Computed example of a mutant assay.
Amino acid sequence: MPYWAYIAHLLGVADELVPRGAADGLRMAHHMILTAGGPTEWTDGPCAPLTTTTTWA
């Protein structure tokens, strides 16, 4: 996490958004997953061939 915190700092990420440890990072990831929302109407067009025509041999 320290390296990512430094990279985030260099990129100008607000300090309160940078996780300070593994537990903090997991909490933030869990929050992002729960609040991300669903796919947009744009997703159906380009992604449909990837999800409907793929066969697993």
Results as ranks from 00 to 15, higher is better:
51 T>P: 00
45 G>W: 09
44 D>K: 09
52 T>W: 03
45 G>E: 11
48 A>G: 03
34 L>E: 13
2 P>Q: 11
53 T>S: 13
31 H>F: 09
48 A>C: 02
24 D>M: 02
34 L>C: 12
45 G>Q: 08
4 W>V: 05
24 D>L: 04
28 M>F: 07
36 A>T: 08
48 A>N: 11
28 M>P: 00
8 A>T: 00
52 T>I: 05
56 W>E: 07
35 T>K: 12
7 I>L: 12
17 L>S: 02
49 P>M: 00
14 A>F: 03
57 A>P: 15
39 P>R: 08
6 Y>A: 02
20 R>V: 04
50 L>N: 06
34 L>G: 08
8 A>G: 01
48 A>Y: 10
27 R>M: 05
55 T>H: 12
43 T>N: 13
26 L>M: 11
20 R>T: 02
34 L>R: 15
32 M>L: 14
54 T>Y: 15
32 M>W: 14
41 E>H: 08
1 M>L: 07
30 H>N: 10
35 T>I: 01
20 R>D: 01
25 G>W: 11
50 L>F: 15
44 D>R: 11
43 T>E: 09
2 P>T: 09
22 A>N: 07
35 T>P: 00
40 T>Y: 10
22 A>R: 13
16 E>K: 09
11 L>P: 00
21 G>W: 03
14 A>L: 08
51 T>V: 12
52 T>E: 13
13 V>S: 02
20 R>G: 12
9 H>E: 13
53 T>M: 08
24 D>I: 02
31 H>N: 06
